[in-house]
Simulated scan of single mutants.
Amino acid sequence: MSVLFTVGYEGTDIDRFVRTLKAAGVRQLADVRAVPVSRKAGFSKKKLAARLAEEGIEYFHFVSLGDPKPGRDAARAGEFDLFRSIYGTHMQTEPAQDALRDLTDTVQAAPTCLLCFERDPETCHRTIVAREISEEVGFDIFNLFADDPDRYVRNAAKLPRFHSGEGATAA
């Protein structure tokens, strides 16, 4: 079975972040932030895309899959049931469904990682997006933590790998 990675950049810097992606074999980064700007150096859209291009990683932004402001506010307040409800409603919109189809096509092409800010994947909408894609194409989800890329270097043989053509739509 093939794999879809997810990662948050909370608690890391751009160098460790990129090393983590490279150690995992990621070739495409799918940014699912509604607002792709950051106070953390290197994580705003243009600088991130340029840095990733230097490293041979393609950058895509799926703005319609970003969490709307009320959902972000609920998550920030620790109201995760409300956050999930707001995001679930957002995911039913036509722009979100169109973006989800585009993202699903993208992740089938090469090893891809979904990006958002939150370190904890269970409190981030990227997990909801990843689960939707996983159900559609049959990929396993593997959450990366970019604060210690050496863990992935040390355990490279144990990392799941992308297998082109695998998944429900390949049959």
Score class of each variant (00 low, 15 high):
128 I>Q: 09
91 M>E: 01
157 A>F: 14
59 Y>G: 01
108 Q>C: 12
24 A>E: 00
101 R>E: 15
127 T>I: 04
47 K>N: 06
170 A>E: 07
8 G>K: 02
82 L>F: 00
163 H>Y: 05
156 A>K: 13
95 P>C: 01
125 H>F: 13
21 L>H: 12
15 D>I: 07
161 R>P: 04
142 F>C: 06
146 A>V: 10
153 V>H: 13
35 V>K: 09
45 K>W: 01
154 R>I: 13
66 G>A: 04
141 I>T: 03
95 P>V: 05
56 G>L: 02
29 L>F: 00
83 F>V: 05
67 D>F: 01
33 R>Y: 00
56 G>C: 06
107 V>N: 02
104 T>D: 13
156 A>C: 08
134 S>F: 11
110 A>R: 14
17 F>I: 12
111 P>N: 12
16 R>A: 09
127 T>A: 08
13 D>T: 09
44 S>M: 05
136 E>R: 14
41 A>P: 03
140 D>C: 13
12 T>V: 15
146 A>H: 11
117 F>S: 03
168 A>G: 08
82 L>G: 00
84 R>P: 10
160 P>S: 03
67 D>I: 01
126 R>M: 07
130 A>H: 13
79 E>C: 00
27 R>E: 07
86 I>L: 05
87 Y>A: 04
74 A>K: 01
155 N>Y: 14
154 R>C: 13
159 L>F: 11
81 D>A: 04
80 F>Y: 12
159 L>T: 08
29 L>K: 03
48 L>Q: 08
116 C>S: 07
157 A>Y: 10
55 E>R: 12
153 V>T: 04
53 A>G: 08
83 F>P: 05
19 R>C: 07
121 P>K: 07
61 H>S: 02
22 K>S: 09
122 E>G: 04
18 V>L: 13
32 V>T: 02
148 D>R: 15
157 A>M: 05
67 D>Q: 10
170 A>L: 14
145 F>C: 06
157 A>E: 11
96 A>N: 01
132 E>C: 12
99 A>L: 15
121 P>L: 09
86 I>V: 05
133 I>Y: 07
52 L>R: 00
89 T>E: 10
37 V>D: 09
169 T>D: 06
141 I>K: 09
84 R>Q: 10
7 V>L: 10
22 K>R: 06
18 V>S: 04
147 D>V: 10
168 A>F: 07
85 S>T: 14
43 F>A: 04
48 L>S: 10
117 F>L: 01
61 H>N: 03
74 A>H: 00
151 R>T: 15
73 D>S: 01
31 D>E: 05
